[in-house]
């Protein structure tokens, strides 16, 4: 490949976004009509094995191009509409999670994501069940998460954008 002088221009001319549709009707109710155009998401790690954190980075890849749907990542929970809870909360993260949920501006939704097989090992379970924490506004629980498309489908449902 020949390198042009302004190589970022070359970079901008590549077309990496996929045309695949991600929307699925999942019976996840939208928290408000105000999310139709934009949805800000804050991911919080509550003790997952780090693969979910790595997949959240992958979700920001140009293949998915989530900005075209109006989905953006916020830097603080105060600026977010959705709290993505990554993993099964371990004891020390429970008060941190509750306080983060407390800091969310209304209206907001919580989406809990656990990767496949994370629900507890044979032997003993790690962490606590998120349903036992008494969190309100839990819109969806993904317990058999496999790939970033699963998250986009839930977020599109929260925005009310289902074909």
């Amino acid at each position: 490949m020949k390198s042009p002088k302004w190589w970022p221009i070359w970079g901008l001319t590549r077309r990496l976004t996929e045309r695949t549709g991600y929307s699925k009707d999942l019976d996840v109710p939208s928290a408000s009509r105000i999310f139709r155009k934009s949805l800000h998401v804050y991911p919080i790690d509550v003790g997952n094995a780090n693969d979910l954190n790595f997949d959240i980075r992958a979700l920001q890849a140009p293949q998915y191009n989530i900005h075209r749907f109006g989905i953006f990542f916020a830097d603080v929970p105060r600026h977010a509409d959705v709290l993505l809870v990554l993993g099964r909360p371990i004891e020390k993260m429970v008060p941190v999670l509750l306080e983060t949920a407390n800091q969310m501006p209304g209206p907001y939704s919580i989406v809990s994501i656990e990767s496949e097989g994370e629900n507890g090992f044979i032997g003993r379970e790690v962490g606590v069940d998120i349903a036992s924490l008494g969190l309100t506004n839990v819109a969806a629980r993904i317990t058999n998460y496999r790939e970033p498309k699963d998250i986009i489908a839930v977020l599109l449902n929260l925005m009310g954008k289902v074909n």
Partner: peptide, 21 residues
């Protein structure tokens, strides 16, 4: 300590859960 008492194949699953990447 979760791995203690497990069979070898299950113990490998536990090892994989230490750090996903």
């Amino acid at each position: 300590s979760s791995a203690i008492g497990l069979g070898v194949e299950d113990a490998l699953n536990v090892a994989e859960s230490v750090c996903g990447n």
